[in-house]
Amino acid sequence: MLRILEELGRYFLLLKKVFSKPEKPSIYYKQTMQELVYLGLNSVIIVAIISFFMGAVITLQTAYNTENPIYPTYLIGLGCRDSIILEFSSTIVALILAGKVGSNIASEIGTMRVTEQIDALETMGVNSASYLILPKIIATLLFNPFLTLMSIIIGILGGWIAGTSAGVITSEDFIYGIQYAFIPYYITYSLIKTLFFAFIITSVSAYQGYYVEGGSLEVGRASTKAVVRSSLLILLFNVILTQLLLS
């Protein structure tokens, strides 16, 4: 228990250092642009592929589990839409990004720690926490909402293609279904969750990397820890946010 409190304290102290005044905004801008490519654009393809197939599977599952004449088939489209918007494109995509981006950040920063690159920044008088972590946080906060929107669109597209080509639903019914009783607030809800999750992934993983002690073995451990901890926090905050935003 004491250890948890100690770690929490260290985590918030790090955040305080991260959000202190940048020494040269132009350099931070440049870094952020790079991180947008590195952490954002590089995740587009994986998110697209996963979203497509998940959309497809969700549609087929819904169809086979509701094979009952009393349910109108357009409900399949509706079910696909809502599961994608509410849970899949925010939470599941965040879990996948925790694996990809989180381990990446932890190992990058961890390696910089054990090879004394962070010490080098500090001796030069650079606020290393801010220089290394702030651009990553900003980049993921900016970019992940686009990933979520993209995931929603591709997921629904995947559902439509799978549903119609497997013959479980007609194109008209599916399109009617995804428009039926649409609640725009669900999108907002999904994007708010995405922002929280993006912050969790980046800051928790950066924290794990920043305080590595030892060598490459410890960097590996930190990167595993980053994935596990950010995933658990995502699941926890998913419950909390759902309760706060949808109840």
């Binding site: 390696t111 910089m112 090879t115 004394e116 690159q117 010490d119 080098a120």
Partner: peptide, 9 residues
Amino acid sequence: LFQGSALFD
């Protein structure tokens, strides 16, 4: 100058 050079990779 650090022991392992500590150049930015």
